[in-house]
């Protein structure tokens, strides 16, 4: 009876599969297997080639809608949990007979002593840093959620104000502010975003975002404000963006004059 080539190569393929599981798997190891199982080299090479080629399938980046949707869901979930939270256990002193009250009082006083001792113990510097770090993370999360997923303009304004109070901005907040400036439908929210971004204009990314936002604005109020900001920042890169705005949009006369004046000042 002839050996089925597929079955006879099974040990070789098993060895290949076992190696493919390793993160550091190298093509040279396939060749080593081919030398070990010369009759199966074709099967080994083609299986490995297929395994490698599926890497060519590229995956797009998830869209902003997914991120916004997640933070909205998280926000709703938190709100719902807070509203529905009720004490899991309600103690009824009057019907409690399972334990001597005297011992309960003693245990309570002892527990209170332990708790207060721990409570009044000064925090070590490491604990203070950790607590501050956690608080900052939480602030970033909340501010991001408000900026990206709230339907209410006042919520988004609150998110922007929270960002302004941060010592430094993390990349998520920088991008959320940028998206707010570019796409928020409320002019006041966009103006507030500019104000906060100006506050952090020493950050190169924030500064660049402010400059790049110029040609995308359609509100005269926002356009004028950005022109003022560019004069304050004295950043010559803004000239190109302002020229683009002048070319691409039919600006109100007053805005047009302001833009030309800004270009002259910057040059």
């Amino acid at each position: 009876m002839k050996n089925d080539p597929k079955n006879s190569c099974q040990p070789a393929l098993d060895a290949l599969l076992a190696q493919m599981e390793n993160e550091n798997f190298q093509p040279a190891e396939v060749e080593a297997l081919c030398r070990q199982f010369p009759d199966c080299s074709e099967s080994l090479r083609s299986t490995y080639a297929m395994w490698e080629s599926i890497e060519e399938i590229d995956v797009p980046e998830p869209g902003q809608a997914m991120h916004a949707g997640f933070y909205k869901m998280l926000n709703d979930f938190q709100t719902e949990t807070t509203q529905t939270a009720s004490p899991r256990f309600q103690f009824d002193w009057w019907t409690w007979n399972g334990f001597s009250l005297k011992w309960a009082v003693i245990a309570g006083v002892f527990a209170l002593g332990l708790f207060s001792g721990n409570f009044f113990r000064p925090e070590t510097p490491q604990e203070i840093v950790l607590t501050q770090h956690e608080e900052n993370n939480q602030e970033v999360d909340v501010s991001y959620a408000k900026l990206t997923s709230s339907e209410s303009a006042s919520d988004r304004l609150e998110g922007i104000q929270m960002a302004k109070k941060m010592e430094q901005l993390d990349n998520r907040i920088i991008e959320a502010l940028n998206q707010t400036l570019l796409h928020d439908r409320n002019v006041n929210v966009r103006l507030s975003a500019i104000e906060t971004m100006l506050h952090f204009a020493d950050n190169p990314q924030v500064r660049e975002n402010l400059i790049r936002a110029i040609p995308h604005q359609t509100s005269p109020l926002v356009q004028m404000t950005l022109a003022e900001v560019m004069i304050a920042l004295k950043d010559k890169r803004a000239v190109h963006e302002i020229q683009e705005l002048l070319q691409e949009q039919q600006l109100e006369l007053e805005v047009q004059m302001k833009m030309e004046e800004t270009i002259e000042t910057l040059l």
Partner: peptide, 27 residues
Amino acid sequence: DLSKMGLLYERHNRDLFGYFYRLTNNA
């Protein structure tokens, strides 16, 4: 501490998206 789910999301959303995208071919 439900806010910590935000950190887990930031860490894993792309991997998870890639997993589903390869399974469904639909972004």
